[in-house]
Amino acid sequence: MQEKPPRNPQAQPASLAQAPDETLLVLFGLGDREAARILTARLTPRAFRVALRMLGGDRAEAEDIAQEAMLRLWRQAADWRQGEARVTTWLYRVTMNLATDRLRMRRGVALDQIAEPEDGHPSVLAQMIAADRVAALDQALAALPERQRQAVVLRHIEGLSNPEIAVILGVGVEAVESLTSRGKRLLAAVLAGRKEELGYVDDRP
């Protein structure tokens, strides 16, 4: 990547890497490539994870959604209103909306189309077991109503707090609690018949 002299002599890359998302976004809005690089590393995985779980584990589609969400962030940067919303909250909301649109477009496509696991990770067996389990989770998640799935993914995959999820989904905190607990009950019910298949009966200490 082309090196660019720092705008501010005190803003060395080392300190830039610790800057808040919003600061980096404003810097990018002013034309800073280094800020874009740090934000890409920091935020793209989040958008990708959420999209991946929302789209039933389809990596290609999740990549498209994550890329589109990040592109919207780049375009928004110059007009970003500081202090109004957290960058991550904004990104999660955009990603969720894009994933929801994609789901609506492809409704009717078979749910058992699970992406092939990729190479270069732990052991093949462990990877297959993990892939089976994740595939099972994705299928079960796909059975949830949209809002429940969003709440469960944000809470249990992303580890967000209920107040932040409430902002992302545009509902109250109590509604988030209700969505999450109903979602998990339904997930458990859907997965109940597959415990043995997924190795949970024998694995349990």
């Binding site: 994740v134 099972a136 997965l191």
Partner: peptide, 8 residues
């Protein structure tokens, strides 16, 4: 379920 979340 928690194990599945962790795996995911």
């Amino acid at each position: 379920l928690e194990d599945l979340f962790a795996t995911a």
